[in-house]
Design a binder for these strands. Sequence first.
DNA 1: AAAAAAC
Length: 484
Amino acid sequence: MSTLYSDLALADSLKRAVADMGYENMTPIQAQAIPVVLTGQDVMGAAQTGTGKTAAFSLPLLQRLLKHENASTSPARHPVRALVLLPTRELADQVAQQIKQYAKYTQLRSTVVFGGIDMKPQTAELKKGVEVLVATPGRLLDHIEAKNAVLNQVEYVVLDEADRMLDIGFLPDLQRILSYLPKQRTTLLFSATFSPEIKRLAGSYLQNPVTIEVARPNETASTVEQRFFRVHDDDKRRALRQVLRERGLTQAFVFVNSRLGCARLARSLERDGLKTSALHGDKSQDERLKSLAAFKAGEVELLVCTDVAARGLDIKDVPAVFNYDIPFNAEDYVHRIGRTGRAGASGLAVSFSGGGNDARLVADIEKLIKKKIELEPLDLEADRPRGRINDGRRHWREEGETGDARDALDQPRESREAYRSPRPHRAPAAPRDPFFDRPYEASEGDQPAAWEAAGKAPVARAPSANIRAKRKVAALFKAAEPSN
DNA sequence: AAAAAAC
């Protein structure tokens, strides 16, 4: 069987676009899936990360849209005929851009909708009419309810990262979306990982599906070197820096399990002089896209991220992925390390197994990927003497400052006590304008206030516990952000 | 346990 794009039964307009992108040979998933999707059958496709799944469904999909004109499709109307759903905004953006590339020589229109940004431009695009709509679930439902998107003529639905789309967090939204679609349609599911339960569930959404498994599902790429180090939780940051140095790594994804942990780590690595940006769900969409763009452009060495970045993101030539935290789901491990070693390149995946449940989680991964995992010790260089303050930095927090005191947390637990310094004496703070949160401004001819004349500060009502908690969280995130 | 996805 030929694996050349030029031999495929695709329109010249699509072949030209593929050629423009420099592709000649199909990957195995493409060679197997494209002919099947061209027949219009339902498909469940499993293939390793980084092997071109997007092209595997979008090219034949576009071909079907070109060749099989819908009876109700007039040149004046552009009903949505194909819907592609993804679990994160960045991924939706990426897939939409790829589809635009493939469709650039055709008359087919496409657009993308996702949350976190203004709805109006998306609405305008939808009103103009598109044949292909790429979306994340929440925002799509908004557009459906606002009657901006009419999906009653959808012929093709693609669930990319299908196992994620079918998991408990997404399922309700997904089911609502599917309820707006015609029953008579083609459904395509793709992912690198499928658990047996998800496979069963997926089956209930498909009609006589063709199953395509190019590699064993859940398999990791053989081009990625996988290392697991046993590291004390307090030593992970040093371990990360050491591995970066030893391996001469210029860029890496660094995965962390929580958003706050992500923000904190990004900030502390930034302070270590590493060019870092953070990507997690508590950042504004604008910041998220900027972080990712800076990493793509090579302006940033480390992308410190949560699992928002675990799936699908296709960035060329990222040499390494760190699991600073071991992921809670073994499947996420497969997706995370799939950010490196893409398109046959080599890559390195380094995971730090610390305390808590980590050993158990590593065992889960071993079981899933069916590869023996060796937990190695990591000899840390004594680059930072422990237990004494001799790095010239302060380890307490001055009033009005945030963040520095937490550096003590980077030290081994037993020596933290040494970082506790007596609180420096300071004059009582001047009262602040509670509305603008700044010192009261004195104006010409001001008399000393009554409180000042009496030599005591005014009594302010303490903020409620609720407000204090909110402020505290906001301050933590603010303090934890890299400065730029 | 966490993250993601809508204001």
